[in-house]
Design a protein around this nucleic acid. Structure first.
Lengths: 210, 210, 210, 210
DNA sequence: TATGAATGAGACTTCATTCAT
DNA sequence: GATGAATGAAGTCTCATTCAT
């Protein structure tokens, strides 16, 4: 798939360039990153990048789509095993926070550059990102159907709210040097906020409050 | 404080430049905006901008700090009248969504550029943004103290989660042309999600569910 | 006219750039000339060129149009004083050959680059060059009307033939170092070839053979 | 002579590359043509071109010399049968205009690129082109000797004039879409212009005016 | 204070050429 | 011989910033 480049080694070289781009973009941001830096980090010549990507924009977009695609596939797999909407929601949240650790650079790039690209790159529709949101939306829909979630829940809004919360907390995690909490712990807190809300009003038995 | 630069009409000119910057930045993004475009939009010469701002970065930062400062002042005033933490939370959320309409350009800039700046501008601490978060944190603290909110609530996490949700929904509102819901309506939905959570588990009486 | 640039000195700077472009283009050809070389030759910064010309192509085109415009104006003036079509033809030819000496660089550029541009620059119509041809066509038309020239003369072809002959001889003059003949002398010879033809067949009285 | 490079099919491959170069150069011009485009058009790999030609310049020069060589040989053959200088001149002119149809691409390349190369390629002497001019010069010399042409005719100038006229008319033919005249007809007109001149002054017997 | 022409460093990208296979 | 992926030098153009007026 996408096998331009030399015999066999091509895909590997392409991957090396993508990895280098993630590293450099996450360190300096898209606009402050120079193509030559990425080339150096990937151990290829400047021109080689243009054998695999149309231009610098395409490098960023490919990065989004391909890496987000992997993320979507993974989270879908995990959720397939989830026992009920609440369990799935928890898995989704935990997975997202876990990505912060496993794929720190990628997440940083997505967090800070996706918005820009989203808004300013002509004709770019972040397909894979929307799929990611759809996974979340699917969980909420299922929860509404089986009565786990409120029947009047607006799924479109809720899924954005949950993603936004996860994203902002991820960002804080990345920005703030002194990490006050572990991602895993944050995951639990976020889960509770969304599952049960902020209020203390006694819930007979916190079914959700595992 | 706003009186750097020239005498007399200076403050007005400075304000014109800031407004022009908001307009251009929100349309094209910080990196795609040219100082000369901002100058033209403000009706001043390119060089004039440098009489009021140190450089292009400073223009963005000043914009953040000064405009966010006004936002913080305003929301504090409104909240002062709030009757209890839940009411305050609602006011905060409604005000934020309302800003989307009243200050669309500013919000767009904050949403898409604050992250970049935050991460890549050396030595920039987004003081006013942190104050905005503190307003939210104050509400949560008060709610914990008076028993409205869960005693084990992690305020640091919760305030980021709420802000993230608001921010993401604002972003969707800005990005997606076909606005599916009004800001006011979205505000109510977000409020409910955070106040009561997603779950259907019957709450005797939705104290929060206004 | 075309007075971008600084107060007053703008036109002069523009002219300096055009002169430098003529010099460099004539020495190295359009494609082998670097914008930075032209800038250096003009005594301006690289970027300054882009204040006066849209891009490198525009520099070449402007050069063609503006300088050819001056040439057209000049030859028209001279011809206005010509006494009859033959005299005018002679003036035109002499003027062209004379330009080789007075405007060597310009003529070299026109000779070697006009063809390229003509053919490969999208949307470029060499207006002033066509006017130059029209001046020649006008002489031929007048000569047909007053019986000086053959009534069956195809003006379109003849004017191209005359221009082609002049142009090729100019080119040879420019290319060949050892200049075997003076332009003035060549002018007379070309004039005779076109006026009387190559043949020896006795003409009663060489009206043309001044 | 044409057998540099590979064995067997080598000459054919070399010819394919030359033909492809003519096609691409005539469409886009030398500087706008990419070696890879020529390779693709020839159905060979980029690197293969370098087995047959030293570099891109050499490709152009080889093209000139080899193809012009064929043209020179052909016109010499045709002229050998000519009956007298005037007939030979006519054959030369007709052949040149005819080439426009038979070898359109080649002629276009020669017209627009020869001048450039001539002037800017170090050490390139267009041998075959000079031979072509010599064929024309030979005709004129013969005509002077046998009294057909004026005894004071400057052959160097006249041959350049004739070639220039042919070349410019060819160029116009190629550039202008709406071809107003057929090459054959233009040949006759050019012949008359040079044989008899432009003037109407009655020639006893139009020996030349076939 | 205000101007805006001028500057020039620097980035993206192209493409002729090479060479390991 | 043939290939075509890889190279990397080099050029055009942009634009933040300056400074003489």
């Amino acid at each position: 798939m996408a096998m331009r480049g030399p015999r066999g080694g091509g895909a590997a070289k392409r991957e090396r360039i993508l990895r280098a781009a993630i590293k450099i973009f996450s360190q300096k941001g898209f606009f402050n990153s120079k193509v030559s830096e990425i080339a150096r980090a990937a151990g290829v010549a400047d021109g080689t990048i243009y054998l695999y990507f149309k231009n610098k924009d395409d490098l960023l977009i490919s990065l989004f789509e391909e890496k987000m695609g992997e993320v979507v596939t993974e989270v879908r797999d995990k959720i397939a095993n989830g026992d009920g909407p609440l369990a799935c929601l928890r898995i989704f949240i935990e997975n997202h926070m876990d990505l912060l650790v496993r794929e720190a650079g990628l997440m940083e790039v997505i967090q800070v550059e996706l918005r820009q690209s989203n808004k300013f790159m002509k004709e770019y529709v972040p397909v894979k990102f929307l799929e990611y949101l759809d996974v979340l939306g699917g969980i909420l829909d299922a929860g509404k159907k089986d009565g786990t979630f409120r029947p009047d829940l607006n799924v479109k809004t809720a899924r954005r709210a949950i993603f936004g919360a996860l994203d902002e907390i991820s960002l804080a995690h990345v920005l703030v040097r002194k990490r006050k909490y572990e991602p895993a712990k944050a995951a639990t807190e976020i889960y509770r906020i969304f599952a049960d809300g902020l209020c203390a009003a006694a819930r007979e038995k916190g079914g959700a409050t595992t």
